[in-house]
Nucleic acid binder design. Structure first.
Length: 99
DNA sequence: GGCAAAGGGAGTACAA
DNA sequence: ATTGTACTCCCTTTGC
């Protein structure tokens, strides 16, 4: 069975226009996205629900996982507040997986 | 000084 | 049952 990964879930949310109040792509460069300061916990809560967690997920806990992605090379933090960037390879493979 | 955001060590859940 | 991965939890530090 294939397990859902956080970076995949975030990519899904970024493709959904109804989630734009929570997180959205930056105009440029490609792969850069940022969370809304007001609604960042909403996307985190959805992530926790999707995983079937018993306790609610928060942005604080979710962002720890995002920091781990710097080690694996999936996503990097950028200097801007609440802003991250998918690596080029990760972005490419995510775009393949979703038509 | 106070809050939101970022950083990181240690523990947990799950699948192989 | 063991083990490695991918988070999850909570405390500390930073920056505005």
């Amino acid at each position: 069975g294939r397990r859902l990964r956080l970076f995949h879930f975030l990519f899904e949310m970024l493709q959904d226009p109804s989630m734009a109040h929570c997180l959205s792509w930056a105009p440029a460069p490609p792969g850069v996205f940022s969370f809304s300061s007001r609604n960042k916990d909403q996307v985190a809560a959805l992530w926790g629900q999707r995983k079937g967690n018993k306790r609610p997920m928060t942005y604080q806990k979710m962002s720890r996982a995002l920091r781990n992605y710097a080690r694996s090379g999936h996503i990097f933090k950028v200097k801007k507040k609440l802003t991250y960037q998918f690596s080029r390879d990760t972005l490419t493979s995510l775009q393949k997986g979703h038509g």
